[in-house]
Computed example of a mutant assay.
Amino acid sequence: MIRSFGLIAFIGVSLMAAPSHAQTFDPRYPICMHVYSGANGGGGEWYDCSFISLPQCRATASGRAATCDLNPYYPFNAAPPRPRHWRSG
């Protein structure tokens, strides 16, 4: 009886755990806008990683509760792709 109660309690606690969130940073773009909607907006906060420059992001964030940050998942130090040389013949 005690074992079954313990098992039920364990399953109940496991189901109440907070769900994990997917990655919110798009690695294709170097700049992300962090938007805060707060308690009045009701939507929480989120990242919009669709900007290629800080001025572009700042223009979009102007007048909003938002900040622009560097994307931590963008490969800034990645080597450029090697040029491909095609042989004719």
Results as ranks from 00 to 15, higher is better:
residue 69 D to H: 08
residue 60 T to D: 11
residue 20 S to L: 12
residue 48 D to N: 02
residue 57 C to H: 01
residue 46 W to M: 00
residue 56 Q to V: 03
residue 9 A to Q: 09
residue 47 Y to V: 04
residue 88 S to M: 12
residue 58 R to N: 15
residue 64 R to G: 00
residue 80 P to E: 07
residue 74 Y to P: 11
residue 28 R to D: 13
residue 76 F to Q: 03
residue 24 T to A: 02
residue 33 M to N: 06
residue 2 I to W: 02
residue 89 G to T: 14
residue 36 Y to T: 14
residue 19 P to V: 01
residue 59 A to W: 08
residue 67 T to R: 13
residue 77 N to R: 04
residue 26 D to K: 08
residue 28 R to K: 07
residue 83 P to Y: 04
residue 88 S to R: 15
residue 11 I to K: 03
residue 89 G to S: 10
residue 53 S to V: 10
residue 45 E to R: 12
residue 79 A to C: 06
residue 6 G to I: 14
residue 47 Y to S: 01
residue 70 L to F: 05
residue 13 V to N: 00
residue 52 I to T: 14
residue 57 C to A: 06
residue 10 F to R: 02
residue 49 C to M: 10
residue 85 H to R: 09
residue 68 C to L: 11
residue 19 P to E: 04
residue 6 G to L: 13
residue 1 M to H: 09
residue 7 L to H: 02
residue 38 G to T: 13
residue 37 S to A: 04
residue 39 A to Q: 07
residue 66 A to H: 13
residue 1 M to T: 09
residue 89 G to D: 07
residue 36 Y to H: 12
residue 8 I to V: 13
residue 55 P to A: 08
residue 62 S to H: 15
residue 46 W to S: 01
residue 19 P to R: 03
residue 71 N to Y: 03
residue 85 H to V: 03
residue 79 A to G: 08
residue 62 S to E: 15
residue 6 G to T: 12
residue 41 G to Q: 09
residue 4 S to K: 02
residue 26 D to T: 06
residue 44 G to C: 12
residue 35 V to H: 13
residue 85 H to N: 01
residue 29 Y to T: 14
residue 88 S to D: 12
residue 41 G to D: 13
residue 35 V to Y: 06
residue 45 E to H: 09
residue 84 R to L: 11
residue 59 A to G: 01
residue 89 G to Y: 06
residue 66 A to R: 10
residue 36 Y to R: 11
